[in-house]
């Protein structure tokens, strides 16, 4: 290397040595590493109370309530052929109400919701605007 390149290398590494640890510190300082927090989180999860549960051949829906919020778990059991599937709460007329969220592949979906679920859940094909499945409580 030429003397200029040697100096450039030195200044680059001096800069990296100062900047990277600062960035690393800032990026991890809000992360939780303690086991206490993990336990608290776990107990909070287990403290959730199951309110209602219902299933058919396509989905299983469970609603929960804890001290802070309401939540809903939607388990999609079999693949659906529709290009888009969006879950909504059923309103008192048993028609499409408040939006819950999108469902894609088979799996477990968890959503926080503002109010308790009273009437059920409906999954719609948002493009064709057709009903995929409906579960009433």
């Amino acid at each position: 290397m030429t003397s200029g390149q040697r100096k450039t290398h030195k200044y680059i590494w001096l800069t990296l040595t100062i900047c990277i640890p600062i960035c690393i510190y800032l990026s991890v300082k809000n992360l939780s590493f303690s086991s206490k927090n993990t336990l608290e989180l776990k107990s909070e999860i287990t403290a959730k109370k199951i309110l209602k549960t219902k299933q058919n051949e396509i989905v299983k829906v469970t609603t929960f309530k804890n001290s802070h919020s309401n939540s809903i778990e939607i388990i999609l059991k079999t693949p659906i052929k529709n290009a888009t599937a969006v879950a909504y709460l059923l309103n008192k007329n048993f028609t499409k109400g408040e939006l819950i969220g999108q469902i894609t592949t088979v799996g477990i979906y968890n959503f926080n919701i503002e109010n308790e679920i009273e009437f059920g859940v409906v999954i719609y094909d948002a493009l064709k605007e057709t009903l995929i499945t409906k579960l009433t409580f």
Binding site: R6, H9, K10, W13, L14, L16, T17, I20
Partner: peptide, 9 residues
Amino acid sequence: ASLHLITAF
């Protein structure tokens, strides 16, 4: 960083 700085100095 240590390797590069040791070499540079």
